[in-house]
Amino acid sequence: MRVEDNVTASGRVTAGVLLGALGVLAFSLTLPVTRISVAGLDPWFVAFGRAAVAGVLAIGYLVLSGRRARGSGDAGGGLRPTASQLRRLVVVAIGVVIGFPLFTSIALSQATAAHGAVVVALLPATTAVFAVVRGGERPSPQFWYAAGAGFVAVLTFVAVSGGMAGGFHTADLWFFAAVLVCALGYAEGGALARDLGGARTICWALVLALPVTVPVAVIAAHGLGAATGVEWLGFGYVALISQFLGFFAWYGGLARGGVARIGQVQAVQPVLTLVWSAVLLHEHVDVVTVAVAVVVLGCVVLTQRAR
């Protein structure tokens, strides 16, 4: 099946949509939980330490999956990407293993999770652009209209609800940088996952990044004893779920449903992030949140039905 056919498939709830939604649910907690972690842990340690922990888990997964593959008669075991794939995996590593965690950790030491949701609203549209540039996908005009409507709804919501209070500041630059590198990593990883699988794609990216993530995490590992249990619990979440298991579902969904199309499911993430911010960080959430969530969900449904 061609990528264009996959992207413009029928609006049925497919495995790709379900996997994408599961990934979004996992990622929706990332900003609030990171905000909790950087309150007691160095932002550089949170960013590189989570990737280092996930990288060790990735080695274990690749070894075990390789043994199963060899036992089934696949001599390659799925453990040896081609030279071309390795180059593209470096792009994934720079985007979602190093860039996004680092930039958001720095930004969240200066701004709230709700403020971060403003820029995260740009992620689905930016991912779709990279899917066109890097993956050759060609969504329909109806797709872009629905995606744009969802983007405007979320951006308006977070602006009106106070996410943009205080105006533009340095944290916004970090958030914008995070969105750009993350969208590139999503598009590249989603395309690679069609050949490698979602799990092996993120695992290989994590392993390739280990020579960077481990030394930086060790250097930034100061004052760890002062962190509370809650702050360490937040670090555990971003390491195990945000950086590792969440990508199993997310890249699997992008590979099955198309990067541009499934990427729009993430339009729901800023609203979910604000809900989690209210629960975990005690921010006020009113009935407007529910209303806008319904609007955004409607726009996501339209992107899935666009042909």
Rank of each mutant, 00 (worst) to 15 (best):
V7W: 02
G11F: 02
R12L: 08
R12Y: 04
V13Y: 12
T14I: 02
G16R: 10
L18E: 05
G20H: 11
G20R: 14
G20C: 10
A21N: 06
A21H: 14
L22N: 05
L22P: 00
G23M: 12
G23K: 07
V24M: 14
P32R: 10
V33R: 06
R35H: 10
S37M: 01
S37F: 04
S37L: 02
W44M: 01
W44D: 02
V46T: 12
A51T: 03
V53S: 09
A54R: 01
A58R: 00
A58H: 01
L64P: 01
A69L: 01
R70G: 04
G71T: 05
S72E: 15
G73W: 00
G78Y: 04
L79E: 15
T82R: 04
S84D: 13
Q85F: 09
Q85R: 04
L89G: 10
V92D: 05
A93V: 11
P101L: 11
L102D: 03
L102A: 13
T104G: 02
S105E: 04
I106H: 01
A107Y: 00
L108F: 00
A111C: 02
A111V: 08
T112P: 00
A114Y: 04
A114L: 08
A117W: 05
V120F: 14
A121T: 12
A121I: 08
L122A: 05
L123Y: 11
P124F: 12
P124M: 13
A125T: 13
A128N: 02
F130H: 11
V132I: 10
G136I: 14
S140T: 15
Q142G: 15
Q142S: 15
F143A: 03
Y145Q: 14
A149D: 07
F151S: 05
V158F: 04
H169Y: 09
H169F: 06
D172G: 04
A177V: 11
A178H: 09
V181E: 03
C182W: 15
G190V: 05
A193R: 08
L196N: 14
R200T: 09
T201F: 00
T201I: 07
W204K: 03
W204A: 11
A205W: 13
L206Y: 02
V212R: 00
T213G: 01
P215R: 10
A217S: 11
A220R: 00
A220I: 02
A221P: 02
A226N: 09
T228D: 09
G229L: 14
G229Y: 07
E231L: 04
G236I: 09
Y237S: 03
Y237R: 10
Y237E: 01
L240E: 07
I241Q: 03
S242I: 10
F248L: 09
W250R: 08
W250P: 05
Y251I: 10
L254T: 11
G258E: 12
R261C: 01
V268E: 12
Q269I: 15
P270V: 14
V271D: 08
T273G: 13
T273D: 05
L274G: 15
L280I: 13
V290D: 03
A293N: 13
V296D: 12
G298H: 07
G298V: 05
V301Y: 00
V301I: 09
L302A: 12
T303I: 07
T303Y: 05
T303E: 10
Q304K: 09
